[in-house]
Simulated scan of single mutants.
Amino acid sequence: MRNNESRLYIGLMSGTSMDGVDAALVDFSKQKPHVAGIESAQIAIDLRASLMALNSSGADELHTAALAANALMRLYAQAVNALLAKTGLKPQDIRAIGAHGQTVRHRPQMFDGTGYTIQLCNPSLLAELTGIDVVADLRSRDVAAGGQGAPLAPFFHRAWFAQESTVGVLNIGGISNLTVLQSDGNTLGFDCGPGNALMDFWIHKHGGQSFDAGGAWGAGGQIISALLEQMLEEPYFALPYPKSTGRDLFNPEWLAKHLANFADAKPQDIQRTLLELTASSIATCASSYEKQSNQTLKELIVCGGGAFNTALMQRLQALLPETNVISSAQRGLPPQDVEAVAFAWLAKQCVERVALPLTSVTGARGARILGGIYPA
C-alpha cells in the first residue's frame, strides 16, 4: 500500500545543457529539507542530438519528439531505481516524483499573446516504469496565467538559501538565471542570458569536448571587444524583468550571425569572449537590480555547472567586487544538486495544493498551483 503520509519526494532534472539527468531524494519531514540521496545518469549522444535538433523546426518533429520523450523517461526511471536501490527504499515509500522533462521550445507570450513552453516528458510512462506518482508539466500553468513559465526554482531558493540580508542565487546551466531573495521576504527571479550553452557548443566544435573544464581554454584567450559589444546589443539584455529566454534565442545560429564579421578570429579568443558575455550579462543583471532597488547583494550563491568554471567564477567576483561570490556547496547544497532538489520541492507543493506567488518572479496574474499529477 502506498504511504500517502510520506514526506519523501524525488526530483528529476535535465537542464538546458543536456549533459545528463540529476535525481535527488529529499526528505521534507523536518523544518529544513534533507537530501537523502543523489543519483545521475548521462544522456546518450544520440538522444542528446535528437533533443538538440528539436530546439528548431525539422522533419517529422512529432515522431522524433515522442520517441525522445520515451527515451528520456527510461533514463529518468533508471536514475529513480538506482536511488531506491542505494537507499533501500521501495516505490510505495515515495510520495511523488517531480519530473521537469527536457525543454525544447520556450516562447511565452509570443504569437497569440499566451505563447507556450514545451518540456518533453511522458509522465504516464515514468509512472508505469517506477510505480510512483509523477508530478509533471510544471511550467505551462504559469504561461497560461500570463507568466514567463520560468524561472521556477526561486521559490525553492527562498526555502533553502534565505538569509537576513538580501542575497542572490545564480543558476548557471545552459542559460543563466538569477534569484533575488530580499531581506523583506519578497522574491524576484529572471533569466540573465546565456550560461554555458554557447561556450559548450564552441569547445565541442573546436575541441571535441562537452565543456571547458574549469574554463581553462577560454581563460587562455583574449577578449574580442568589438564582438563582445556587438553581442551585448542583443535586445533581450535590455528587457525589464520578469523575463525568460532559452536556446530558442541563444543558439549556434545566433552565434554564427555575430561571428560573420570575425572570420579570422582565433577560436580560443572567441571562447574567452563568450565567457565574458556570460559573466557580463549576469553582472549587469545584478547591478541593475541593485541600482533599481537601492539594495546591495551581500552574497551571490552560484549553482549549476557554471559553478565549476573557475575562470567564470573569478570574472563574476571581479565584476561584482562588493558581493561575495560563492558556490552553493558553501551553503549546504552542491551546485549540481540544486535544481533536482528544487523540483522535488515543487512536486510537494503541487501534491499539497500550495499555490505559489508567481507574480514577482514570472509575471503571472497571481498565485497558481503548478503541475499535473499522474498516478502510479
Rank of each mutant, 00 (worst) to 15 (best):
Arg74Pro: 08
Asn171Pro: 02
Asp264Cys: 05
Ile94Ser: 08
Thr359Trp: 03
Asp27Gly: 14
Gly173Glu: 13
Ala286Arg: 12
His258Met: 06
Cys121Arg: 13
Gly101Trp: 05
Leu346Gln: 00
Leu126His: 02
Thr323Met: 10
Ala77Asn: 01
Leu275Asn: 07
Asp46Val: 12
Leu319His: 06
Ile282Glu: 12
Met73Gln: 15
Ala344Arg: 00
Ala41Leu: 13
Ala153Tyr: 07
Leu120Asp: 12
Leu125Lys: 15
Gly193Ile: 07
Phe262Asp: 02
Cys192His: 12
Leu255Ala: 03
Pro151Ile: 13
Ile45Met: 08
Ala99Ser: 15
Ser225Val: 10
Leu319Met: 08
Pro33Lys: 02
Ile43Cys: 04
Ala265Asp: 08
Glu276Asn: 09
Thr117Ser: 15
Phe343Asn: 03
Ala279Lys: 07
Glu233Gln: 15
Ala36Asp: 05
Ala59Gly: 03
Gly214Thr: 06
Lys257Glu: 03
Asn294Pro: 01
Glu61Gly: 05
Arg74Glu: 15
Lys243Met: 14
Ala307Thr: 12
Leu300Ala: 14
Met231Asn: 11
Ser183Asp: 14
Asn294Lys: 12
Thr362Gln: 06
Gln182His: 14
Phe111Lys: 02
Gly366Thr: 12
Asn251Tyr: 15
Ser244Trp: 10
Leu51Tyr: 01
Gly220Glu: 15
Ala99Pro: 01
Val169Thr: 00
Leu120Ile: 13
Ile10Lys: 03
Gln295Tyr: 09
